[in-house]
Design a protein around this nucleic acid. Structure first.
Length: 270
DNA sequence: CTCCCGTCCTGTGGGC
DNA sequence: TGCCCACAGGACGGGA
């Protein structure tokens, strides 16, 4: 479900609420065990010093040199209200006001585990993640270099390696903005084109963060609000509708097993 | 090493 | 109404 703008929106709401509090307990509900929920008891009695984000991962800094890594998968949410169904984990906190965070995850694709801070050997995508798109690290030269691959551009973007945080919606949106066909071999793109793609990614994600992300079905921020970017989407979810640039019918296909939207006129393969 | 595909899991919506 | 299939914001592991 959540891509960078949604996770960033959640992080901003969570940070003031969690920072400075002590983790009193982590309660596994509906018995999630195994590597996806490793070492959670280790968080108990540690104080939360910061709530950070890398790509789509939330990184909760703990006082004894550990890190609570949270990935929401497709359908995960963190909420102060106990969900009626699909509750997986309850985190109990010290202090006044809201003292419980609930991790709701219908499809169970999410994960939550404790690692030594910065040790991401159990999280290969995080370990090899590209630069944050809204940081100085995301520069033209490095991005162009990261695209020297025979792979198709869309699946490469979804790998998180050239740049962090793009998922299925924003990959389609960015490629439409930059007028690049999702199946174009990444290394066939000129420097000028990769520069345009970089610019598209930055502008798109900044606007989406401002809007609080995109709600398609059930995404909600911790305070219960849907994301406002949905009605600003240019191609995603608009198959057969006219392209907003050239009026040609938006096409929907499957690329790398994911629904993929593009304009066959603006985004040519060659 | 890189790339591609299937798989993990549950819910929903469309077609018949 | 009921059933079945396709599809859904992601990441990982295995095989080529």
């Amino acid at each position: 479900m959540p891509e960078l703008p949604e996770v960033e929106t959640i992080r901003r709401q969570l940070a003031p609420w969690l920072t400075g509090r002590l983790v009193r307990a982590v309660v596994l509900v509906d018995a999630p065990t195994g590597p996806k929920y490793a070492r959670l008891p280790q968080a108990v009695d540690q104080r939360i010093s910061a709530v950070n984000r890398r790509g789509k991962f939330l990184l909760v800094e703990l006082s004894r040199g550990d890190e609570l890594v949270i990935h929401l998968g497709m359908t995960g949410t963190l909420t102060p209200l106990r969900p009626a169904r699909h509750l997986r984990i309850t985190i109990e906190l010290s202090g006044r006001g809201r003292r419980r965070v609930y991790f709701k995850d219908p499809r169970r694709f999410g994960r939550m585990l404790v690692v030594t801070a910065g040790d991401y050997t159990e999280l290969p995508t995080l370990a090899r993640m590209g630069p944050e798109p809204l940081s100085e690290q995301f520069d033209r030269l490095r991005f162009h270099a990261a695209l020297q691959s025979a792979a198709a551009i869309k699946p490469l973007l979804l790998s998180q390696r050239p740049v962090a945080g793009l998922g299925n919606i924003y990959a389609d949106e960015a490629l439409w903005r930059a007028r690049i066909h999702p199946l174009r071999a990444a290394r066939s793109l000129t420097k000028r084109k990769t520069g345009q793609l970089r610019q598209a990614i930055v502008e798109l994600l900044a606007k989406a963060v401002d809007a609080g992300g995109t709600t398609l079905l059930d995404y909600r921020t911790p305070d219960g609000q849907p994301g406002g970017y949905r009605n600003q989407l240019d191609v995603y979810g608009r198959p057969h509708e006219p392209c907003l640039r050239c009026n040609a019918a938006i096409r929907k296909t499957v690329v790398a097993g994911r629904g993929t939207h593009f304009c066959p006129r603006c985004q040519r393969l060659r």
